[in-house]
Design a protein around this nucleic acid. Structure first.
Lengths: 119, 119
DNA sequence: TCAACGTTTCATGAGTAGTTGAAATATGAG
DNA sequence: CTCATATTTCAACTACTCATGAAACGTTGA
């Protein structure tokens, strides 16, 4: 990921509602959620929600598709991964302290990443 | 890391100059760099630099100490790690696609993290 | 104490992002 | 076609962030 993209993604995530939206969408994977349902969970007006969804889409973090009269949004998880990769590698240069602190706990349990990286 | 902290950190990083500063400081670890030297590398006026350094410090991403008439700034690498951990775990729920894409390449080479996490 | 250096603070103005409510658009049902 | 639903767009306003240059602050050395 390039710096410009990373900056756009960071700016998009640096807002409470938008971060909530991403957190909500990631677990739903490709299926995503319709805008209305997202609005019900993050508690904001339709126009505000649309604004934030548009901001996230422009930053490449989510993608929209139409399903009948609803619009389904889903997280672009590779983009999120790229952003995190940028922070780890380009920004922090794979620094050991940074890596050791990220305390990853994926499907195989906390510490997997830490153990794998720096032996 | 809590959401509020993560939001503050993301907002701080979502600026070209400030991202550059962090990138510059991380490799210097605890030793850090004096403000003037940072200013020389990121090419901005002294007052602007001071503003950005202050923003990063308030977000907890860097820390300042005085050394004579100079002020030395260093990256708080654990904070960066915590932010990345927040993005991976709290925000993305340890999602496999996200993790696989982060393409970590720490000291032991690209792919360590990927291999370690999801078998 | 004085002058020089390194850095921060302040006041100001410009630009950008965020919120709101109303109106507009797009789709599906009757 | 008309109506209801789902979502987006628009205009207006507020609030915040950013940049600039001048002034102030703290430290060192003469």
């Amino acid at each position: 990921m390039r710096e410009a993209q990373a900056l756009a993604a960071l700016a998009a995530l640096a807002h409470e509602t938008r971060l909530q939206i991403v957190r909500l969408l990631v677990p739903h994977g490709r299926d995503g959620l319709p805008a209305g349902e997202i609005g019900g969970k993050v508690d904001c007006s339709a126009s505000r929600l649309s604004f934030h969804l548009s901001a996230l889409e422009q930053a490449g973090l989510i993608v929209a598709r139409r399903d009948g009269r609803r619009v389904i949004y889903s997280a672009r998880r590779r983009k999120m991964g790229s952003l995190i990769g940028y922070l780890l590698n380009d920004c922090c240069n794979g620094d050991e302290t940074v890596c050791n602190t990220c305390g990853f706990d994926g499907p195989n349990g906390r510490g997997d990443c830490r153990a794998g990286i720096h032996g």
